[in-house]
Structure formats: C-alpha cells, structure tokens
C-alpha cells in the first residue's frame, strides 16, 4: 500500500508534459497580451476599453470550439465504447463551461463600458451565447444524476453530441440575424482590423486556446490519479477482506477457497 500511495503521489505531481505545456501557455499569454497592450494601437472609436476585446473574443471562440470538441470526443466514445473518450469529452466541456463564465463576465463588463448596460436582451449574439451556456450548464447535473457509470457515460455522450450540433447552428443563425449593437468580428474583412491589431488578436486567441488545452490536461491527469487511487483502495479492501477468510481453517464441507471468499461477501 505504501508503494502504491508513493506511486500515486509521484503521479499527482505535474508530469513533464503538463509542466512544459503550462510554461508554453504562460509564455504565449505573456507574448499575446504584451502585443495587445503595447503594440496594438488604441482603437479610435472605443478607446482603451477595446483592450477587453483581446480577452473576451478569444474566450468566446475557445469556449465554442471546446464545446464542439467535447461533442466530437463523445461521438468517439459512442463509436468505440472506450471510457477514456468520455472522460476527455467531460473535461473539454467542463473547462469550456468555465471559459464561458469568463466570456460572459468580460463581455458584460465591456458592454457596461461601451454601451452603458451590463446586458442587452435584444442582441442575438449575447442571448444565443447565454442559451448555449445554459444548455451546457445542464450537462453536469444530468451526468451526475445517473449512478450507473456505463449509463452515465452513454447518456452524457448523447447530450454532448446534440449540444455540440446546436453550437454551429446557433452561430449561423446569429450571423443571419440583424445585429443590434454587438459588432461582428469574424468577417471577410477581419473586422476591419489593422495588421498589428490582427496579429495581437491571433496571438491572444492562440494563447487562450493553449491555456484551454493545458487546463484540460491538468484535469485529465488529476482524474487519472483519482481513478487509479480508487481502484487501488478497492483492491486493498478486497485483499483485506479475503486475507482473514483464507487464514481461517476451512470447514470440512468447503469445496474450494474461492467459493468460500465469494460466499463471504
């Protein structure tokens, strides 16, 4: 047991892959936001408050991509039956939900600074993002309401696929709707951004994407350690239960030790 727990303790420390990924995302975030604050020009229309754009838009894009990725991973789970895909799908959706909260929070602050309102219900972009967020907010309660792990994974995968299909449909519908106040960024003209602004935006988008991947990796590693610990605890309990039964003198009518242990449960 001592060896097992040392093994788990060693595994719970950040692995080399995770550590280098974390360092890479920290460097990318530093470079991206360095460009956003010190190289990209101050926008003429909104002024300094437009710097929120470099955080809010990459967060929103990464969130939606993460939700779609969660659906694709869930489809892979249903196709192969391998539980690892379900765990990956769960983690992608979990991290994306956290990013969605950040996108809603930063967007609301930006709206207050530029439009004078924390929220505009007439704006389809805002309301559709909120609907997508609320849809995914149901994912965890639905998942953990099911006790049987097999059924839990299967139902969660179906939900993830349906919800992921909803994301691009929603995106297209919003594009087709008339914008009220929210600007459109991903247009043919690139939202009319000058070169240095576009470079800073792409760098920030890459950095936020990398951070998403790092957080997914962190949670996956933590989950792996927890699962292994649970398995080991169950095995040690089983061994502790089986040991006295094996040590006890067998009654004359006992057929085999295995039968005795099974009957003892």
């Amino acid at each position: 047991m001592r060896v097992a727990s040392r093994l788990i303790a060693a595994q719970s420390r950040p692995t080399r892959g995770l550590r280098s990924l974390a360092l890479l995302s920290a460097a990318a975030l530093g470079a991206g936001y360095g460009l956003a604050f010190f190289s990209a020009p101050i926008e003429a229309d909104q002024g300094f408050v437009q710097k929120i754009f470099y955080l809010h838009v990459p967060l929103a894009i990464t969130t939606l991509v993460g939700f779609v990725a969660g659906g694709l991973l869930a489809a892979q789970h249903l196709r192969t039956g391998d539980r690892r895909w379900d765990v990956r799908s769960y983690v992608a959706i979990h991290v994306s939900t956290v990013f969605a909260v950040a996108a809603l929070g930063t967007g609301s602050i930006w709206a207050r600074a530029s439009w004078g309102h924390w929220w505009v219900w007439q704006e389809p972009t805002l309301v559709s993002f909120l609907i997508v967020f609320l849809l995914y907010a149901c994912y965890q309660p639905l998942r953990f309401a099911i006790v049987d792990p097999e059924r839990q994974a299967r139902y969660a995968s179906v939900f993830a696929i349906v919800a992921a299909a909803f994301v691009p449909v929603n995106f297209v519908a919003v594009r087709m709707a008339q914008s009220f106040t929210h600007p459109r960024v991903l247009t043919d003209t690139g939202g009319s951004m000058p070169g240095s602004m576009r470079l800073a935006f792409v760098a920030c988008l890459g950095a936020i994407g990398l951070l998403h991947v790092t957080l997914c990796r962190l949670e996956l590693d933590a989950k792996r350690v927890r699962m292994r610990a649970r398995r080991m605890a169950m095995e040690s309990e089983r061994a502790a239960f089986a040991a006295p039964a094996a040590a006890a003198p067998a009654p004359p009518s006992a057929a085999a030790p295995g039968v005795l242990v099974a009957g003892g449960r």
């Binding site: 909104q46 002024g47 300094f48 408050v49 710097k51 929120i52 955080l55 809010h56 967060l59 950040a102 929070g105 930063t106 602050i109 930006w110 207050r112 600074a113």
Partner: peptide, 17 residues
C-alpha cells in the same frame, strides 16, 4: 471613455478571468 475612466473596466475584465 478616456483612459482614466476606461482602465477600471479593463482591469476588472482581466481580473475576472
């Protein structure tokens, strides 16, 4: 907003994240 009025909003957004 001017720089003086805008920076608390920008700081708040980054702090939330």
């Amino acid at each position: 907003l001017g720089l003086h009025a805008a920076w608390p909003y920008v700081a708040a957004a980054y702090v939330v994240f």
